[in-house]
Computed example of a mutant assay.
Amino acid sequence: MLTTNKKNRLIIVVPAYNEEEALGKSLDVLQNVLLTLIKQQKVSNESKLVVVNDGSKDKTWQIIEDASKQSDYISGINFSRNFGHQNAIIGGLTASRPYGDVFITIDADLQDDVKAIYEMVDNYLDGYDVVYGARNDRETDSRFKRWTADTFYKLMNKIGVELVPESADFRLTSGRVVDELLDYPEQNLFLRGILPSIGFPSTVVYYKRKERELGESKYPLRKMLALAWDGITSFSIAPMHLVLFMGILTTFVSFVMLFYTAIQYLNGHVIQGWSSLMVSIWFIGGIQLIALSIIGEYIGKVFKETKKRPRFIIQDNLLK
């Protein structure tokens, strides 16, 4: 195992949105982890916690400012408004890259086990550039959430998107991986899919995810579904293939209906069925709307990319 030196400056990036209830405790826990690693001489004394306030409406930024005044190991950046979780991670990595050599991202609610950080750092010192944190079970989730998660990973695998199963945004990345990641200019970020595509030596650390102790989840079902949809449409045109398949299927059904109508006509059954006509109209209309919506989604993403607007705006920066 390598020994510590000034090149092992660890930056723990913590995205936070309306986390005033949990953030104080989270900072204490994470700072203790950081100080332990420094004491063990696994990371540099120049290591820091960098909290990214993603446009919170509560006292999150005030807590960050107060903590930074009390500790040299805590710093933060403040977005001008809410830009979303993925952009908060990218913003934190961008702002802190000059100050660090290895980076860990973890959410402020600390449902991810901070003890896994020790193993992540050990793996980094053993030569791994990326260390993914992955859950070893989903006992804390509802049956519906477990089913949707399993379905999502299977679907992404089917359409050719490489993901680390049960891994979210709790991970360690080396400086050179962060440099490659920051070269990705796209607006529609899905970091769980981008990181595996970069390559470099990687491994996985498994841990048991805890239930949230304080505050409310910032990722309800609506946001989770939106993130899943972003992941699918950002990495694959499989939905477009689905539209093509549905179009072919609809055409096949229309030929079957035409054949059926001809048989009925030859048998003297000339009265047209109102029900079959209505079903056909609704069926075809529904497929057309689905197709237009999926095509529109891709066009919308292209539209956003062409404008090249900033992914985040930093209003205040405490890094020094």
Score class of each variant (00 low, 15 high):
residue 2 L to I: 12
residue 8 N to D: 14
residue 9 R to V: 10
residue 11 I to V: 13
residue 20 E to T: 11
residue 20 E to A: 14
residue 21 E to K: 13
residue 23 L to N: 07
residue 24 G to W: 01
residue 27 L to G: 04
residue 43 V to R: 06
residue 43 V to F: 05
residue 48 K to I: 10
residue 52 V to K: 01
residue 59 K to E: 11
residue 59 K to V: 03
residue 68 S to I: 05
residue 68 S to G: 04
residue 70 Q to S: 15
residue 73 Y to A: 09
residue 74 I to R: 07
residue 79 F to S: 04
residue 85 H to R: 06
residue 91 G to R: 04
residue 99 Y to L: 15
residue 99 Y to I: 10
residue 114 V to C: 08
residue 115 K to A: 08
residue 118 Y to T: 09
residue 121 V to D: 07
residue 126 D to P: 00
residue 138 R to T: 10
residue 158 K to S: 10
residue 172 L to R: 04
residue 183 D to F: 00
residue 184 Y to G: 00
residue 190 F to Q: 06
residue 192 R to M: 15
residue 197 S to Q: 14
residue 197 S to F: 03
residue 203 T to L: 08
residue 204 V to Q: 00
residue 205 V to F: 03
residue 208 K to L: 03
residue 208 K to V: 12
residue 217 S to A: 13
residue 226 A to K: 11
residue 230 D to K: 12
residue 233 T to D: 00
residue 237 I to R: 14
residue 241 H to P: 00
residue 244 L to C: 02
residue 245 F to P: 01
residue 247 G to Q: 14
residue 252 F to G: 08
residue 253 V to R: 13
residue 257 M to I: 13
residue 259 F to P: 02
residue 262 A to T: 07
residue 265 Y to W: 13
residue 265 Y to I: 15
residue 269 H to I: 09
residue 277 L to S: 13
residue 278 M to P: 02
residue 282 W to G: 15
residue 288 Q to W: 11
residue 291 A to L: 06
residue 291 A to I: 02
